[in-house]
Simulated assay, not measured.
Amino acid sequence: MTISRRHFIASLGALSLSAKAPAILAQGLGDYPNRPIKIIVPLAAGGGGDLTARQIAKLLTERMGSPVIVENKPGAGGSIGTSYALRTPADGYTLLMLSSSHTCNAALRELPYDSIKDVEPISLLKRESLILVGRNGLPAKNLPDLLEIAKKEPGKITYGSSGVGGITHLSMEHMTDLAGVKLNHIAYKGTGPALQDVLGGTIDLMFSSVAIVVPIINDQRAVGLAIADHRIPALPDVPTFKEAGVPEFKSDLWHAVAGPKGIPPEIVAKLNAELKAVLEMPEMQERIAAEGSQAVGSSPEEFQQTIENDIAQWKNVIQKTGIKAE
């Protein structure tokens, strides 16, 4: 078989490029990071997302040899801090802590940024199941009994949420739409006040993160009716929604790291690898497990798909239920 001189030279060129690929990748990284990296948390200090960001920042600092600091920019349901972060240079030095609220906001409100196109996904960090919590003395022993009461007396059962369009509100509307019932919604300014009224018997139900209510349920100050996705060891008697008769229900709380669109792929790959390594550390695994959450460590593509799927789901719920932003 005769090989032309042109094809021979082309083959040598391809081999040369292949051999240089790792070097090219390293050259793209340069000396990144050579100055502090900032993680913007678009929520107030002290919450679950903020505490996770600070632990991640501490461990990334140790691994990467450059300071990683957390800056809180709360307000407008997280959109102020998100808007700020997405308008910074796409160089990998300003990152953004995102949560499920990002997709709820995108589904309900007009925002000063595109919640998909303006975001460079890096990695999901953790997922936490939502749990349906009822007050003591609720006139139902389980979720099927509760739904039966709601069908017979629409609007009699009351539930609280952290606010109109939040994940606890949209999740309840999603569940009641699937079950074909109508509950009476009372919006609060945060999860804490709503939970206090569940404990005080003022309202009947609410959705909550597992981490907040495990001790409350175990102390029999409230009742766990159903949990999303899977049972957890901390609450072994609380059934899943599938087991309780609402198999299509899907909702969870997640936290993740992203940045402004256009971060070089080499830097995205490095940050993704570093975040995955941090999530595998025993101290991080223990911390996340103690919260009732699961460490994830996804690819950027998987994170992107989560954002798109969640926005589509919440838009569908909003359209079907007629929820309006306040």
Rank of each mutant, 00 (worst) to 15 (best):
L205F: 08
L60V: 01
I116S: 07
K242V: 12
Q55G: 15
L132Y: 11
E274D: 14
A106Q: 02
Q313E: 13
A258E: 11
P215Q: 01
K189D: 15
G30T: 08
P67M: 00
I116M: 12
S79I: 00
A258T: 09
A45N: 04
T202P: 02
K320E: 06
H174E: 12
A194F: 07
L124M: 13
L279R: 13
N105K: 12
R35L: 00
P36A: 02
E148S: 14
E266S: 15
A222F: 05
S11N: 09
H7I: 10
S79L: 01
I40L: 03
N136E: 13
N218V: 04
N272A: 09
G259W: 00
A226C: 10
A26G: 07
L235Y: 03
I3F: 10
Y84A: 02
E266Q: 15
I323L: 15
G297F: 01
A10Q: 11
A53Q: 13
H255S: 14
A57D: 14
I157N: 08
A53S: 15
A289D: 11
L98Y: 06
I307A: 00
L51C: 09
P215V: 01
E291A: 14
G30S: 08
S129Q: 15
K315Q: 12
V257Q: 10
V70N: 02
D229Q: 08
D31M: 03
G259D: 05
T82W: 01
P233V: 01
T321V: 09
T240Q: 10
E326T: 09
K189R: 15
Q294G: 04
V70D: 04
V246Y: 08
G245F: 04
I39R: 02
I56F: 08
A10G: 01
V257P: 12
T168K: 12
L108E: 11
A244C: 12
K20T: 11
K38Y: 00
S101P: 02
I307Y: 00
E243N: 10
G137I: 07
L60G: 05
L98W: 03
N142L: 04
I39K: 04
I311G: 02
S18I: 12
A90R: 05
T158N: 08
T240E: 08
Q27E: 15
A325N: 06
P233A: 01
D252F: 14
T191G: 12
P121G: 14
W314T: 05
L15F: 10
S4T: 15
F207E: 01
S129C: 08
Y32H: 01
H185A: 03
M1R: 10
S100M: 08
F249G: 02
K58S: 15
A273I: 05
D204V: 00
L146V: 07
P193V: 06
I9H: 06
S100F: 01
E283L: 11
P260H: 06
R221L: 15
D197W: 06
N34T: 09
I227Y: 10
E326V: 12
D204I: 00
T2V: 13
L170Y: 04
R135N: 01
H7F: 05
S83K: 08
A187G: 12
H174N: 07
L17Q: 02
G163P: 08
K242Q: 14
